[in-house]
Design a protein around this nucleic acid. Sequence first.
DNA 1: GTTAACTGTAAACGGTGTAAACTGGAGGTT
DNA 2: AACCTCCAGTTTACACCGTTTACAGTTAAC
Lengths: 249, 249
Amino acid sequence: MTTAPTSASSTRAQTHAATTARIVAAARTLLVNRGEVTLRAVARELGMTAPALYRYAASHEELVRMVAISIDTDVAERITGAADGQPADDPAGRLIAAAVEFRQWALDNREEFSLVFTNVDVDCVDEVSSPGTGMIFSALLFELWEKYRFPIPALTDLEPGLATILRDPQVPADLTGVPEEMRGLVWILERAWSRLYGTVTLEVFRHIDPRIVDEAHLFRAMIEDQAAPLGLVDELPRLRTLIRDLLAR
Amino acid sequence: MTTAPTSASSTRAQTHAATTARIVAAARTLLVNRGEVTLRAVARELGMTAPALYRYAASHEELVRMVAISIDTDVAERITGAADGQPADDPAGRLIAAAVEFRQWALDNREEFSLVFTNVDVDCVDEVSSPGTGMIFSALLFELWEKYRFPIPALTDLEPGLATILRDPQVPADLTGVPEEMRGLVWILERAWSRLYGTVTLEVFRHIDPRIVDEAHLFRAMIEDQAAPLGLVDELPRLRTLIRDLLAR
DNA sequence: GTTAACTGTAAACGGTGTAAACTGGAGGTT
DNA sequence: AACCTCCAGTTTACACCGTTTACAGTTAAC
C-alpha cells in the first residue's frame, strides 16, 4: 500500500512539521508573555482560527504537552552548552556549570519551569527518548566518576529492595555497559538529582527568605554538600570560585 | 458611631463566615474530585448561582487563595497531630512524625499539595500569621535543639551577607527572645526545610523512579542525612525503626 | 417602623475548548 | 496532463467559564 517516500513526496509531511513547529513556538511565546496558552490566541498569532489547530494537536492538553517537550529539549541544550563552556578534562566544572545554568534558567523562566518540572498532568516528558534534562545530568555524573573514581556503594550494602531497583532502574540514563558493581552510581545520581531539583524548586516557588535566593546561599551550600560524596573536597576552593563566577554572569 | 458588638448583633458576620466556610469546603471537594475549582460548580454545589459567590470572594483567584489557606491550615493541624502522637520528651520523634505525615499527605493529595506548595501565583500563604506549615516545623526544630543542643554555626563563621539575613530573617518562625548567638539555628532550619520540601516535591511530581517513591528509599535517606547536623547519630537506630513504623501506617 | 445593608437572582458580555459540516487547493497517482 | 483523493483551513454552533450590571427580597439595625 505505502510506497517508499521519495525526497519530493515528503513535502506533505514537511510542511506539517513546519507549521507544527510554528504553533509550538507561538504557544511558548504566549506562555512567557501572557502566562497562559490559549488555542484561540495561538491561532490568532498565526493568522488562523482555533479549530485549525486540531489538525496538529488532538486537544489543548496535547498542545501543552508538546510545549513542555519543546521546553525540556531547549533547557537540555542550554545545559549542554553551559557544560561545554568548561574544559573537557574538567568534569567537575562541567557538572557545576550545568547545574548553575539549570538554576538560572529556572529562576528566569518560572512559568516554563513549573510547566515541565512541577506538573501533575504533563509527566510524559520523562518518556521521551530525546536527550532531556535528566539524561544530560546523568551523563555528566558518569564523566565525573571516570575521572575522580569516588567510592560507589555496593548493591549488597544497600537495602535489598533498593538494590533490586538499581539493577534495572527507570531513569533517564544510558546504562548499557554499566556493570553490576557500578549500579550504586545510579543511587548517587538519584540523590544528587534530588538535591538539585529540590533546591531549585524551593527557590523558584520562594518558600524561603527571598534574599537567600537572590544571594544563592542555599544553592551554593547544596552544591558544596555534594563535594564530599563526589570526591571533590580537594577541588572545593577552585570550584567555589568557579560557582561564584558562573553565578555572577 | 460603632457601638460595642453585642452577642446578638454579631449574627450578620456569623452567617457570612459560615457560608464562606461552606464555599471553601465545597471548593476543596471539587478540587479533589474534579481536579479544578470553578465558580459555577461551587455555586451549584451550594444551590446558588455563580455571581452570588462574589459576595464572599472578590474574584476566582481570591477563592483559590482562600482554598489554599484552608489547605495549609489543615495540613498544619495534621502535622501537629502527628507530632503530638509522640512523647512530649522526644522532640526527635515528634519532628520525624511531622515530616512523615507531611510527606504522606503530599503523596495522597497531589493536587492540593501542588496548589499550596508549587504555585507561582498563590504565594500569599506565607504572609498568613496563622500557624501554617512552616511555623510548625520551626517550632519542632527549636524543641529539638532545647534537648540535644547540637552545634549552631556562629554568624561570624558564615558569609556576611548570610549573617545579615539571619539577624532579621523573613521566615515563618517565632524568634522573639532568640539571641544573636543562636540565629545560626535559622540557617539550620532553612537547610532542613529545603531538604524536606525538595524531597517531597520530587516524590510528588515523580521525577524519579516510582519504586523509589513507593518504598520511600529517598525520603528515608534524606531524613537520615539530617541526623548528623541535628545531633541525632546516637539515636539513629531507634529513629530508623520509628520511621518504618510511621511509614507503614 | 422605617431604613439601610446584605444576600441572592437573572440577564448578558466576551472568552474558552471542542465538535461537525463544509470548501478550496495542492499532492499523489494513473 | 488529468484525475481524484486527502488535507488544511473556515464557518457555525454548543456548553462552559469568569465577571458585570441591574434588580428584588429579606433582615438586622436605628
